[in-house]
Design a protein around this nucleic acid. Structure first.
Lengths: 183, 183
DNA sequence: GTCTATACTTAGATAGAC
DNA sequence: GTCTATCTAAGTATAGAC
């Protein structure tokens, strides 16, 4: 039998790479095709549109978040649960979704235009809600948001990005502290 | 004499508005011109290129940051100084530069491509350095970055943006706490 | 499953009249 | 200082051969 091709996965990988590097709108299908040494038309065989590539990328993330949320929902709302949620989210980002998160964070206009925020934003808001639990304090809510931001901040070039990206475990420690009750 | 026109300022204002709304690359000069009810060519009278509009927008921010840094440099490196730096930065953002910060944060690829990160990134890194002072702890450094992020987080739609933007004073309180020594 | 060739659209930018 | 008209380059996408 003919060797099965992993072209589709390679397109996803290279496209994401370029989207992160140059931004979504500054990346043309021609560039993607060239880096893969295929033609533009080949891309259109695997994906209906350029937007579809992004959708396929986000879909995996949404699935993973859904599983995380499923776990979180059927656990008692305790500090331990919330901290374990952060740990698992941190691991998810570090292990599999760092590039996608990077892409999303730095291409908000594109992401909004593609209507990707609907499924994704929902999941993120629910994660946020689980982490906030019953707390109604606006300061605590902001600290919770910052805890999540801390876990993906290594990806942000603003405010001293390049020189010192915090290691994931440092970020996790700070995040855990942010959702812990005050002293 | 003929009535002097404020067209240049109006272009800056409308352009920034559209850049924030739809993103830099999704905003065409045609759109800007239409919203101002002038023609594309009129824009080219006031700005050499589309990129120049962005440069003019960032320049004001860089100037303001420079003044803030001047103040900070000639003060003793104390907790009070650092907290006052945060207060002044917070006021700067809230009063004048919220839209520009919003634009920068959500259009990183464009901003990088325009080479705007050189003057701007320098200032932000120096602000960060002043806030970090002599502290060498990576956790403290991350908390400092988060303090800055907190002050512009209202602009970020990720992680529960739309429904509850923290009021500036809440953000400032959390930021101040993040740079204060631990208990 | 991959290619060639091309249609279609829109972008940024310029020249020159008024 | 603003207009009309136009140029050039690039993008996404399609049709149809191999």
């Amino acid at each position: 039998m003919g060797r099965r091709s992993d072209t589709r996965e390679r397109i996803q990988h290279v496209a994401l790479e370029l989207f992160v590097e140059h931004g979504y709108e500054n990346t043309s299908l021609r560039e993607i095709a060239e880096r893969l040494d295929v033609t533009k038309a080949a891309l259109y065989y695997h994906f209906r549109t350029k937007e579809d590539i992004v959708h396929s990328l986000i879909a995996d993330l949404v699935t993973a978040l859904d599983e995380l949320l499923d776990w979180g929902r059927q656990r008692p709302s305790t500090v331990e649960t919330r901290q374990e949620l952060l740990r698992r989210f941190s691991a998810l980002v570090a292990d599999r979704f760092e590039p996608v998160m990077h892409f999303i964070q730095q291409n908000i206009p594109a992401v909004k235009k593609l209507g990707v925020m609907h499924p994704l934003g929902e999941k993120l808001r629910e994660l946020f809600a689980l982490l906030c639990a019953d707390v109604d304090d606006p300061e605590a809510a902001l600290r919770t948001r910052l805890a999540l931001v801390a876990l993906v901040l290594g990806l942000n070039p603003i405010f001293g990005g390049a020189q010192a990206t915090p290691p994931p475990d440092v970020a996790l420690d700070v995040a855990l502290e942010l959702v812990a009750p005050r002293g």
